[in-house]
């Protein structure tokens, strides 16, 4: 599919970012906030308090099927995973359901690889690209667990919710997939839910985070944090 003329994709949180005065950039065809105030301030807030970032562009694939695990084994030689366990951004949500998170843009190629593998092995596995259907809000910072404990009944203590774990639960009265994927030492959680609820979840988290001095951060600050 020719990408030259393909238009820019917008995330469901764009209007909010505009309202908060973000300047925008483009990444893998998505228009996302580059910075809200200043990258340094946003990095400090992430390191010392808690921040929200719009990571909707991350690729999202859903694998359904009793043989999904063997397709993943053949295609990406992924070891066997327990429920809620993840490795290399692939998470087992149920015996017959896996969720794959990929860097922006990479989902198309991975889906093709998985589809051909399952076709060759004639295993009935459905691989669906649900990237456009989900908003992904990244919660980063030392106060992230306490913030999340104001909107979700799960236990976010490291012993109960270790790194590279994915759990589906209700958050702010909506169904969300919560994946812990730390950035170095910084605890970080991805809140993934239907995109039509994105603005509501973002606003609710910002309100709940006011006591921690929560701020939104853009691509620049996030990239800097992830490089360390």
């Amino acid at each position: 599919m020719s990408t030259s003329k393909t238009p820019t994709k917008l995330t469901p949180l764009r209007s909010i970012a505009q309202r908060l005065g973000a300047t925008f950039t483009e990444e893998q065809g998505w228009r996302i906030p580059e910075v809200y105030t200043a990258a340094e301030g946003e990095i400090t807030a992430a390191r010392e308090r808690v921040v929200l970032a719009d990571e909707t562009p991350n690729g999202k694939l859903l694998l359904e099927g009793d043989h999904a695990d063997s397709v993943l084994m053949d295609a990406l030689d992924l070891g066997s995973l327990q429920i809620n366990e993840g490795s290399d951004r692939i998470y087992r949500l149920r015996n017959d359901i896996f969720f794959m998170s990929t860097p922006p843009g990479r989902e198309v190629r991975v889906q093709k690889k998985l589809t051909t593998t399952s076709a060759v092995s004639k295993q009935f596995v459905t691989i669906t690209d649900i990237t456009h259907g989900r908003a992904e809000i990244r919660v980063i910072g030392p106060d992230s667990q306490e913030l999340l404990s104001k909107v979700c009944g799960l236990d976010f203590h490291p012993s109960a919710f270790p790194n590279e774990t994915a759990k589906q639960s209700s958050l702010a009265k909506t169904t969300q997939l919560i994946i812990r994927r730390d950035i170095g030492e910084l605890p970080a959680f991805s809140i993934i839910g239907t995109q039509s609820l994105g603005p509501y979840v973002w606003d609710t988290m910002m309100e709940a985070g006011r006591e921690f001095g929560i701020v939104p951060i853009g691509r620049a600050a996030l990239a800097a944090l992830e490089e360390e």
Partner: peptide, 14 residues
């Protein structure tokens, strides 16, 4: 507690 009444909006709500 904090008012949490879920609202769904379409991508072109604005």
């Amino acid at each position: 507690g904090q008012n949490m009444e879920p609202v769904q909006t379409t991508p072109i709500h604005q």
